[in-house]
């Protein structure tokens, strides 16, 4: 069904536009937000706030739907266990995020803004993801 290709394309495009408009594709902006003890830039708090308002409504709507519009059944995370892997992984991610001011979405979106450097970041990120996947398989 074509909607199962169009819907994620629309979602990704809106996402990329929001990231670029909100300043998240600019590492200086992101690091400015994380620079809480220095010259703090609150812009990303507005980005998070805007996204939260819309998503809080979307979760309300979701409760009333028995199925999503273009797919059979919801496939949502249902884990509630707090693990060392969750915390440790998130800490590593946060360190990487702080170092370069990029997380996965803005890194990929920035491929059209700062192509060569964004490509280096995305390539390293994919290698990292592969390494994590391999280490999880062998453990």
């Amino acid at each position: 069904m074509i909607a199962r290709l169009i819907a994620p394309l629309v979602s990704g495009t809106l996402f990329g536009a929001g990231l670029a408009l909100g300043g998240m594709t600019n590492p200086a902006r992101v690091r400015g937000f994380l620079d809480l003890f220095g010259e703090w830039d609150p812009t990303l708090a507005f980005v998070m706030g805007g996204a939260m308002i819309v998503m809080a409504i979307a979760w309300r709507v979701q409760l009333r739907l028995s199925n999503p519009i273009f797919a059979e059944g919801f496939a949502l995370p249902d884990r509630t266990d707090l693990t060392a892997k969750l915390v440790g992984g998130s800490a590593l991610f946060g360190i990487g995020w702080g170092i370069a001011g990029l997380c996965p979405g803005p890194g990929i979106a920035a491929l059209v803004i700062e192509p060569a450097l964004a490509a280096i970041f995305v390539a390293a990120m994919l290698v990292g993801m592969g390494l994590a996947q391999i280490s999880q398989r062998s453990s």
């Binding site: 979602s11 996402f15 536009a17 929001g18 990231l19 300043g23 996204a51 819309v54 999503p68 496939a75």
Partner: peptide, 23 residues
């Protein structure tokens, strides 16, 4: 710009959630 960008991101995530049932 941050707020509008955030709303777009929220809409994007809503399309994924309500359209395809995913995060």
């Amino acid at each position: 710009a941050g707020l509008v960008g955030g709303v777009l991101i929220g809409l994007a995530a809503s399309v994924m959630l309500l359209g395809l049932g995913r995060i």
